[in-house]
């Protein structure tokens, strides 16, 4: 009766994994520093998948044997699952260990994108100037579409649910306590925000959180966070915007 059911199915999902940024190629020092971190929160790091980010090292031309660092990481209980910003040899080593190489995001630093956008903005009016002068005021407001599409959600986000958006995240319904919403870009909640909201998760310090009714358990932008205990009573249950200024979270009521 049920043998018509398919054996498998492909689905696209987003997973969350910590990224290990290395600033020094001294493997012994790395191991020691890691061990110290693990001792602080052994449960948190146990069997954790890990992406190794070598961009900084390679910027400083510090070479690192990827096979060796993988061995060390595995020894202390991590599961390295990816390499980012490796040089040619490191990438070869990674693929010999069947560890995926992140090439998409290699230059994906938000500030760099911002710069190229500006350049394009300057070029654009020139190419179009003769024909559409009247229609297109040369305002710097129009940004060429490099962005990822925003994610729109109209269903309530219930306790225990997690939402991840690679661009902006727009939520029309409430976000319950115990739910977690994350976006690489901005987060808009046009309803009550009771759960945890993390905007700019890939270090995008320009990201903001907007919500109609702030009752969040935790808010974070690019890793800087506040819990509900730290929230000022004056902005509780108010419509607010939240942004980052000199590594401080600013919460302002939207009047």
């Amino acid at each position: 009766m049920l043998n018509t059911s398919p054996v498998l199915e492909f689905k696209s999902s987003t997973f969350f994994a910590p990224v290990l940024l290395l600033f020094n190629n001294d493997i012994a020092a790395i191991e020691q520093a890691l061990q110290e971190k693990i001792n602080l929160a052994p449960e948190f790091f146990r069997d954790s998948p890990l992406i190794v980010d070598l961009r900084e090292l390679n910027k400083q031309n510090q070479d690192l044997d990827f096979i060796q660092i993988t061995k060390v990481l595995r020894k202390i209980g991590f599961f390295p699952v990816g390499i980012r910003g490796g040089n040619e040899q490191q990438n070869r080593q990674a693929s010999s260990l069947s560890i995926p190489i992140d090439t998409v995001r290699e230059q994906g630093n938000p500030t760099i994108i911002g710069e190229t956008q500006k350049q394009e903005n300057i070029k654009q009016p020139h190419s179009q100037s003769e024909v559409t002068v009247a229609k297109e005021p040369a305002g710097p407001v129009s940004v060429p579409s490099v962005s990822v599409a925003a994610t729109l959600i109209t269903q309530p986000i219930r306790s225990g649910q997690r939402i991840y958006a690679s661009g902006d995240l727009i939520i029309m319904s409430q976000v319950s306590a115990g739910a977690e919403i994350m976006a690489e870009g901005n987060i808009h909640v046009y309803n009550t925000l009771r759960g945890r909201a993390l905007a700019g998760v890939h270090d995008n310090t320009a990201a903001r959180i907007f919500c109609f009714d702030l009752q969040a358990e935790l808010i974070s932008i690019a890793g800087d966070y506040k819990t509900s205990e730290d929230l000022n009573k004056q902005i509780y249950k108010k419509p607010v915007q939240i942004y980052l200024q000199n590594h401080a979270l600013i919460i302002k009521e939207i009047a």
Binding site: I157, R158, G160, Q161, S176, G178, A179
Partner: peptide
């Protein structure tokens, strides 16, 4: 109430 909210999340997913 919170457990019900969690259950609603499971119902919808």
């Amino acid at each position: 109430v919170r457990d019900s909210d969690r259950m609603l999340g499971i119902l919808s997913s």
